[in-house]
Amino acid sequence: MAMQGIMGLLRNAMPAASAKHTVLGVFSDAESAATAGDELKSAGIPDTDYDFLTDSPYPEGSLGERDEPHRLYLYPFIGALLGLSSGIMITAMTQVAYPLVTGGKPVLSLPPMAIVCYEGTMLGAILFTVIGIVFESRLPKFDLGLYDNRITQGFLGLRVKAEPEQSREVVQIMNAAGAVDVKTDQ
């Protein structure tokens, strides 16, 4: 999983090696963008080849976009387990190595160990969550690619990776759906 994340990171950091063209349609409203997405699907373009770019999160499925499964929730669990294990090891090994009897309590007392273990669990979970966010969101991406600043003003972008022979059709679909502007990387 982590290897997949690293590969994804590298893949996104590098300029695209494929021969696909990128087309960006800019739409002034969500309905037109969603219509363009539907038309692209009808034209046989896989939904993994296009992305909606928005300036704020839209409700799930409102643009007819694909589901985006991710494994972010696994990262904190892994981090927590590692942190907890480290906490148990540090406290147990320290107390066994330097056995001091305090107030008649057993050398390996769980309540004081719990404090260090909890701290280790939290720190591990937080660290791994941040790592997970970086991997799973495919950041950092050094090459921004096609973008339009109007997207920051409430417009929507529809970015398509299309085979060279399909680019013209994609542009036509976007224009027909009501794009206010269509850009290509060619």
Binding site: P76, A125, I133, L139, I151
Partner: peptide
């Protein structure tokens, strides 16, 4: 900003990350 451009995946990870980090915080 790390090349943020607002795809659905990025918004999803951001939302999930904020929820998880918020809980841990």
């Amino acid at each position: 900003a790390g090349g943020w451009y607002g795809t659905k995946r990025q918004w999803q990870i951001q939302k999930g990350g904020l929820a998880i980090l918020g809980g841990l915080y």
